[in-house]
Amino acid sequence: MAKRIDVSDLNVYYGSFKAVEGVSMTVEPRSVTAFIGPSGCGKSTFLRTLNRMHEVIPGGRVEGKVMLDDQDLYAASMDPVTVRRTVGMVFQRPNPFPTMSIYDNVAAGLRLNGVKNKKTLDGIVESSLKGANLWNEVKDRLNKPGAGLSGGQQQRLCIARAIAVQPQVLLMDEPCSALDPISTLAIEDLINELKNDYTIVIVTHNMQQAARVSDRTAFFNLKATGEPGRLVEVDDTTRIFNNPSQQATEDYISGRFG
């Protein structure tokens, strides 16, 4: 089910501004890869190219190649909608649909794509909420608005919503940055479970979090503001945190940055 991502020589632009340059890396299936790096170095930008969300932004375009197993995501014949069904995404700020109940939020991806069967939906909603460790907290109020949950619950609701469409890869852009430590731990536990079934890429500013949850870590950096961000190195997390091959990585990890 989970798939490998192969990126080669990727440049990402906002109009004429080159935000990310020359990224080549491999993301292993059934593992967690963390992206770290200073603010503005293009982690979110790069992440969004992995499910073609980048091109939603006016002027957003990409050069280079992204392979999902043997499929070229940016091939002319590839429909971005199909890509996004395969590669799901969780955003920095929880964004449940405000007009929908908890149940409808989780079912949204399926319903909006035409699944109507009540039994199927019930089953998937329950398993997704269980998968997101939210079921016990909301099972008695599935028809209440999703926006009425706490921030941490909303974020887990968004994770449930993302896994309900059964993607192969899950991208998470700072999923815990708006959450308290307890909700953060809940989500980290969840990521640990999810990696049995999914390929997970997570952007985080929290080094401990990267060290805790990820198998591999990619460090991004930029020379100066206005310059494009680059991938400095990607390696096993233990190696990045204990014995990185680049000086810049070591400086960043140890807080001796800039």
Partner: peptide, 11 residues
């Protein structure tokens, strides 16, 4: 964000 949430579900 709501539009993006929807697109990200493959809608």
């Amino acid at each position: 964000e709501l539009r993006e949430a929807s697109y990200a579900l493959g809608v």
